[in-house]
Design a protein around this nucleic acid. Structure first.
Lengths: 348, 348
DNA sequence: CTGTTAGCGCGTTCAT
DNA sequence: ATGAACGCGCTAACAG
């Protein structure tokens, strides 16, 4: 006869959904659902014999765990939101790539969010993604709305802040010292004998990391007794075209310039390409330095001198830090300086 | 006295988790939890008065819905997995960018997965992400393991397959006709009067879309009575450096070549940069054509002739198609040809 | 090592 | 327009 039990089974799924559940597997293997759960999540806690029976049943039925249900029960999905300012800027993408590759290998999934450099959008995004009960969060930068900081602190799970390094962070921090990187290129240009040196950037209003590099640049020049506040910038987004434009603007405004320190390699590459077009000699007529270490730099003529930052590795490192914490251990240091490297090539 | 009820409330959360729940809000507003749920999800079904009280309570308590619980109850989170072959290839990133921007604006979140061009990894990823009860899925390409196809079909929710167009797709399809795009460039080179024309690519073993373009190229040449199977390729990933290398290999193997049709702009740009370095004249000594329409192309000297594909728009279109289906409507056509455009510049 | 019980926080369903 | 009851599928906690 149809018992009450079977009635329940009939109306089990809300809608046309008919996925195999852990209960189906348990029945097939002749065990309790929890044993299936254990066989899948902590195999060492289940006898070899049962494990095998269960693996069979899983295979036979094509069971795929419902991670949503698991997440609700255990208050933690294997999802890591990664919040970046923009997906149109190569830097962030390479970082995301490093993160994604590392986390996916460890069985976590990346939930992508972008703020368009807007801290209010960041705040809203954080609220929203915390609703997914993520295992941890990776954020860009150290600068957030108070509400964001409060939420994340109250939340209490691992958080990594990425890109720049600072005195205080929410939880963990990996990045580079932007002012030092800026000073590094400035000192290199000084050593080469250049004295009329300008810093050129775009979108520096929103990109405070570029401003930090400029600050390092300025201080390095002034420490050497050289005028350091020669700055050219506009607010368009970084691109080759933007690089060509600031390059020309600076040349026009300041024809006796000897060297240009660009806020990033995209701009610097644009400048070299423009110089190529006009038959200008680099570095004889004008020296050019960049920041990032984009692959394009070494293929230009002249090859671009740059301060390279390991962007992919920065992502990997952030993910590793998070994974350590997710495994319940605590990392040797919650702060990782990923470093930078001056690569001297032909353009200076 | 402590009633049974309050005991339950004490031990409510499994672990240190202390998030505000819908019940807290309901209590504060003096309504039932379900009313809060409605006020948030279908405000038009709740009286203005209650809605206001509830909004207040939400604000005051800082309530953020637990999307996991919602997902479990309603069998559908607002998550869209996007599965791409690689995050180190700019093309896919721009597509993801378009998708992400469109979906995020509509209140959906992108779950990122990458397969490294491996169909078995793709199959595993699909299994895994379906566990998140996503609202829909966006996949790359039309070629999948049988098991992947079966799962997705049985699953029954919206699926978009992206990049190339084909006769049959799982559900919806947006992309470009690769063979036509390849033929387009080939015909352009023929029109320019070139006869000794080679196709050069890298990683074509895994990248069957590049093979499709080569096929279109070959047929166009042979239709014109020109030898079409001049092919140079190797299996390294695409990069400027790889472009420089195939360029040199082809020149050496075939010094009387008149034109080169590259599988993508990265390779073509590498070739132009190498030609710059060697003082070779393009297109006089050798003509160069690309595919994609990367920004770099127009800044090179000579500017690169290319077949441009609107990659960002392709992502936007895919997301829109999905959104239409998610709103319960059905799109005018489940197949969108995103098109391509021949951009003739200086290099041919 | 295995099972029982009791929710996780919501939305569906059905009643009012 | 609002509410009560129930279960989505899984795992934590506690027994045995």
């Amino acid at each position: 006869m149809a018992t009450g039990k079977s009635v329940i089974r009939e109306r089990r799924r809300h809608r046309g959904d008919n996925r195999v559940t852990i209960e189906d597997v348990a029945k097939q293997a002749g065990v309790a659902p929890i044993t299936v759960s254990r066989a899948l999540n902590t195999p060492e806690k289940v006898s070899a014999k049962l494990r095998e029976r269960i693996d069979h049943a899983v295979e036979a039925l094509g069971y795929v765990p419902n991670l949503i249900a698991g997440g609700l029960a255990s208050a933690g999905t294997r999802v890591i939101p990664v919040i970046v300012p923009s997906l149109s800027i190569l830097t962030f993408i390479e970082v995301v790539h490093g993160i994604q590759q590392t986390l996916e290998a460890a069985g976590y999934q990346v939930l992508l969010g972008s703020t368009d450099f807007d801290l209010d959008r960041e705040a809203a995004l954080v609220d929203s993604v915390l609703g997914y009960s993520p295992s941890g969060v990776i954020m860009t930068g150290l600068l957030h709305r108070d509400s964001t900081v409060r939420r994340l602190k109250a939340w209490g799970r691992p958080v990594v802040e990425l890109m720049e390094l600072g005195d205080s962070c929410l939880d963990m921090n990996v990045g580079v010292e932007n002012d030092e990187a800026g000073a590094c290129m400035a000192r290199h240009l000084l050593e080469r004998g250049y004295r009329r040196i300008a810093f050129l950037g775009t979108g520096m209003q929103r990109d405070y990391r570029a401003r930090q590099r400029y600050e390092g640049h300025r201080q390095a020049l002034e420490a050497a007794g050289v005028k350091g506040d020669l700055l050219f910038h506009n607010e368009e987004p970084s691109s080759y075209a933007a690089g060509r434009r600031v390059f020309l603007e600076a040349l026009e405004a300041c024809p006796d310039l000897e060297a240009m320190h660009f806020a990033n390699d995209n701009l610097a590459a644009g400048a070299i390409l423009e110089a190529n077009r006009r038959g200008m000699r680099v570095p004889e007529d004008i020296a050019i330095g960049g920041y990032l270490g984009l692959p394009l730099g070494e293929h230009l003529t002249p090859q671009l001198t740059t301060v390279a930052v390991p962007r992919f590795e920065m992502g990997v490192e952030a993910a590793k830090l998070l994974l350590v914490r997710l495994e319940g251990r605590s990392p040797p240091s919650p702060r990782v300086d990923i470093g930078y490297e001056l690569i001297v090539r032909e353009s200076t």
